[in-house]
Design a binder for these strands. Sequence first.
DNA 1: GCTTGACTTAAAGTGGACTTTAAGTTGTAT
DNA 2: ATACAACTTAAAGTCCACTTTAAGTCAAGC
Lengths: 144, 144
Amino acid sequence: MFYTIGEMAKKLNVAASTLRYYDKEGLLPFVERSGGGIRMFKDEDMEWLTIIECLKQTGMPIRDIKTFIDWCMAGDATIDQRLDLIDRQRKSVEQQLARMQNTLRVLEYKHWYYETAKKAGTCAVHDTLSKEQIPKQFRNWIHG
Amino acid sequence: MFYTIGEMAKKLNVAASTLRYYDKEGLLPFVERSGGGIRMFKDEDMEWLTIIECLKQTGMPIRDIKTFIDWCMAGDATIDQRLDLIDRQRKSVEQQLARMQNTLRVLEYKHWYYETAKKAGTCAVHDTLSKEQIPKQFRNWIHG
DNA sequence: GCTTGACTTAAAGTGGACTTTAAGTTGTAT
DNA sequence: ATACAACTTAAAGTCCACTTTAAGTCAAGC
């Protein structure tokens, strides 16, 4: 079962031009072509695109993803490099997660801040609150 | 206590040109100037830069951050808008966190995949594994 | 065989977030 | 007073990841 670039783009919910761009950048060396030059995507190509999407989600630039794909195409001689790259990306994602969770805490504080201000009709209410009126998780917090 | 743009940039670990860019884009309307036109950052400006950094971390574009800052400068009449914006960003970050956690699971799988391949000396080992040899968390997983 | 929509490429264009450059000013230290 | 590092602006440049355009080709239906 083969898919055209348009069908694959729809399945992946990306623009066909994006897939052409990835191909041009060397991210899709596994995609076959018809006699007439039309790209013929296979079901198993989805797996490749899933790992590409995964690496993209980690913030990895296109050329580094290409390096990884190239290593995959090169076979077993590159297993060590691939393991290293995956581990580095894993650590990076763990850090990003920690930062993102911190960001979420700030937004939760801001939510409380503005909800309280909304009820009072003014942000000035925050100058009048006693420590007990501030939710525990936000006390001893360094901010405005 | 005042800081020059260079001192503030060092404190924040960003380039001074970045702060000038933010100022030009209207993100720093609160920064005062000396008689000669030199920016004079105050300690309390750190709070502003912290929330800017927080919103930037959520993926919010510069102009939307400007909108938020403008609302802050406008006073109590914009509390509702600010609450809405914070809530939207909070939901966005929750989604990003969920996606990132999924990405991490994929990377953990890939780590196991390549570690196993490394021990065996070939990726082909994965064609020979019985279900029991695949860690529980990775069984019934849809991928290569 | 012709139309038509989806495909092809190369090249140019876009948008976002800076970064660098050039020319000039400020302010501190001697 | 003068040197000098750090500041100022406007404008141009860079990098990245696409997206669009232009000109043309492919392939399925009539």
